[in-house]
């Protein structure tokens, strides 16, 4: 088992490679998920706001092709 951690004397290089890769990929995923959550909140907020102001107005369709 100690062999596994020592990596033949190259522990610093090997483990920092795997550590940095893990950190970078997890951080990118987290930032993206957080951004998605925030955008959903903002969108829901805006939609309820619009509904309360102009109940009859059709929802805008920004997704539609111009």
């Amino acid at each position: 088992m100690s062999n596994f951690f020592e990596m033949g004397g190259y522990a610093g290089y090997v483990w920092s490679s795997y550590g940095l890769a893990t950190i970078a990929l997890v951080v990118l995923l987290m930032v993206s998920l957080r951004g998605l959550k925030k955008s959903r909140r903002d969108l829901a907020h805006l939609e309820t706001l619009l509904k309360s102001r102009r109940p009859r107005r059709k929802k805008a369709q920004p997704d539609a092709q111009s």
Partner: peptide, 25 residues
């Protein structure tokens, strides 16, 4: 693929927010 889907959804929401702001109230 996972992060791409998350980020595309995010961007679609943000564009929709922008459009609602402009076209809505």
């Amino acid at each position: 693929v996972i992060v791409l889907i998350v980020r595309v959804r995010l961007e679609l929401n943000e564009r929709r927010i922008r459009a609602l702001q402009l076209g809505g109230v």
